[in-house]
Design a protein around this nucleic acid. Structure first.
Lengths: 205, 205
DNA sequence: TAGATTGTTAATCGATTAACAATC
DNA sequence: TAGATTGTTAATCGATTAACAATC
């Protein structure tokens, strides 16, 4: 079995991709590990090393073709296809996620929104209608959804996550401020603004 | 000069604090590095090592008093006081942030919201009124605000951040999907759900 | 060619873990 | 006391960086 690419390397690729897209939008056709490093606050050596896990994408003397590297990173990250995502929890945060335009451009499509509040079920959210949480399992199976954005209260996050995993979900972006306990192989990423803010207040007087 | 605590250690403290608060809510009065480690998916040795950078908080044979450790972590993280925060960018995400109840409990108070859209200025958001972005500097100085949540479009994020830093801001929680270039000493934390989702799609077929 | 930059190796740096004396 | 768990040291593991041959 070939050695895995370190997770921390994979975690940087989306940031490279994001910045390269910006470079392209600015009209740049070629860049270098040095330029990219300066833009990202990362050493050029690290960028070259990270990329070297996946192949050779540059040319000595000139650097990297921006469009080509974007294409390659999209392929590596599986960002070159469309992903169906469901959102569970139709609160304010869920509302913001559904209306966020940054997902679609990356092939990340929220195709269903769920809540268990009768007040919310049936509400029209953009092109979507908030559905009854009791129908999540059917929807996941019918649509073959593998990714969830979880934006429910902390108190119910674990039990909802258990249901989702049972229904076949493979990856959870968890906005609830708790650590989830799930079977091996289920991917979980955490976003909690309080954690970031408290990290910063540590350094403030 | 005493050696700094590694940043990665500081970054884990808010997660410890969050989980300890949950333990306390569950009625637990004492815990151990082993229990905490299991809950967090972290090795017990790492938890003890992390805490040892700041003092001795446990008792051999019994473990840690939950309330006492919470108190100590809050002190270490400066989470035992109130922090004034302003939100810049009154979009859907900003709306969700202002209405999020998870901040206040931690002493994190959003005391002002700003936008440059005349349609939004003057809108009532809970207890706050959306203010004209041209008045940000005055507000920061008058209220002595040091933390900003930045939720503006990527295109303007850098220039807005520059203004904020000029006005005296010390820490930015940046939701705009770009890397900010700011003077040394300015703290910036990034939240970009696309980065997390693309990290996960790497592992999905 | 001369200058620039890659991809890679080896060295360095830093973080995690194992182990255990101390002690509750 | 016996059992449990801390705080800490030393060993291990892994990630970052410096350096450079290759080459565009």
């Amino acid at each position: 079995m070939r050695k895995d690419v370190p997770k921390i390397v994979v975690a940087r690729l989306p940031v490279y991709l994001r910045d390269l897209s910006q470079l392209r939008d600015e009209g740049k056709e070629v860049t270098s590990s040095q330029e990219l490093g300066k833009r990202l606050g990362i050493s050029p050596a690290q960028i070259r090393k990270d990329l070297s896990h996946f192949g050779e994408f540059g040319k000595q003397g000139t650097g990297y073709n921006v469009s080509y590297l974007i294409e390659q990173l999209r392929r590596i990250l599986h960002a070159d296809r469309n992903w169906k995502i469901i959102l569970v929890g139709a609160g304010d945060l869920g509302h913001a996620m559904v209306h966020y335009t940054g997902f679609r451009k990356q092939g990340l499509h929220i195709i269903g929104v769920f809540d268990n509040d009768p007040q919310k079920i049936g509400q029209r959210w953009g092109e979507l209608t908030v559905m009854d949480a009791s129908t999540i399992e059917d929807f996941i199976q019918k649509e073959n959804v593998r990714i969830v954005i979880l934006a429910v209260p902390a108190k119910v996050a674990q039990q909802v996550a258990d249901r989702l995993v049972n229904a076949g979900i493979r990856a959870i972006l968890n906005y609830a401020p708790i650590v989830l306990h799930l079977p091996n192989g289920i991917l979980v990423e955490y976003i909690d603004p309080v954690v970031h803010l408290q990290y910063m207040t540590y350094f403030l007087e």
